[in-house]
């Protein structure tokens, strides 16, 4: 457990054993304060927690430079306790490249949203991956421009209603979403590519392992690493706050499927991840029909 500092008053929970504290009430050591001004139910603070904990667990807090894109998460540039460079919208991968070439022994990573990375700066991330640049790009993907108030991005899924796709994203009219992880994984310079999510505790834990592996890939000098994290944006999706995780799992999560897309040179497509999930689901259902699994 690297998260050790209370972020605010520790809430009591009837169900919890004596002395237990909720993780949500603790802030990562690499945050200067637990306060933030993002919306209730936003997934981005969770993703920030996860990468900060991963860096701390790897013991590289004092040899890391972060490059921030522009989006709601940019608010954290004032509270993340890492040396940091603020980039223009879409331009973080090239800035990270310049930093890494001058500081080859340091961990250098970008934090970008889907509007930043997949709309504005798509060629940046692709070329950085193709060059095998030894940096890590982290994408917080919520399929919407949250900061501007809920507009369609290149990763918005078909049927998604936004302020610029009022009747839902229509392939005929708006085109198809880009599965960025698949584009990146096909490039030779990309060494590790994964897609995580923060819609439940299991997904959060798995995403943290992905981020660790991405940073380890960079530290080993193996090439470019990339982790996409699906994050809730109840505000930009125009849904009740509490519905965020399930809504995301059932909409974005069905298209941008969670899993590892490239490990040790072996590429798996999103379609293959999807098929695996379906197969596993069938196995579980069959098991349940036979009388359930013994947990």
């Amino acid at each position: 457990m690297t998260t050790s500092q209370p972020a605010g008053p520790v809430l009591d929970s009837d169900a919890a054993p004596e002395g237990a504290r909720k993780i949500a009430d603790l802030k990562p050591d690499l945050l200067l304060t637990g306060e933030h001004n993002l919306c209730p139910g936003c997934g981005e603070p969770l993703a920030v927690r996860v990468y900060l904990e991963a860096l701390q667990e790897l013991g590289v807090s004092r040899e890391t430079v972060m490059v921030a894109g522009i989006g709601c998460y940019t608010m954290f540039t004032g509270t993340v306790d890492l040396d940091l460079v603020q980039a223009l919208h879409g331009r973080a991968p090239s800035v990270a490249t310049g930093i890494k070439r001058m500081l080859p022994d340091k961990v250098v990573f970008t934090l970008q949203g889907d509007g930043d990375m997949v709309n504005e700066g798509l060629q940046e991330v692709l070329h950085t991956a193709a060059r095998g640049e030894r940096v890590t790009c982290i994408l917080l993907n919520n399929g919407v421009f949250g900061e501007t108030g809920g507009h369609m991005t290149a990763t918005s899924v078909l049927g998604q209603r936004t302020k610029s796709s009022l009747e839902g994203r229509d392939a005929e009219y708006h085109g198809y979403p880009i599965l960025i992880g698949d584009l990146v994984s096909r490039l030779q310079g990309a060494a590790y590519v994964a897609r995580g999510s923060v819609h439940n505790a299991g997904a959060v834990a798995r995403t943290k392992r992905m981020l660790r592996r991405a940073f380890e890939t960079q530290l080993a000098g193996d090439g470019f690493s990339f982790v996409e994290v699906l994050t809730m944006c109840p505000t930009g999706w125009f849904i009740p706050t509490a519905d965020g995780p399930d809504y995301m799992h059932e909409t974005l999560g069905e298209v941008h499927v969670m899993g590892e897309l490239k490990v040790d040179g072996m590429v798996k497509t999103t379609e293959e991840l999807h098929a695996e999930n379906v197969r596993k689901q069938h196995e579980v259902e069959a098991e349940l029909e036979r009388g359930g699994v013994d947990l």
Partner: peptide, 10 residues
Amino acid sequence: LEAVGMAWGA
């Protein structure tokens, strides 16, 4: 675009 971004980082 990337050329100036890279110089920015350096």
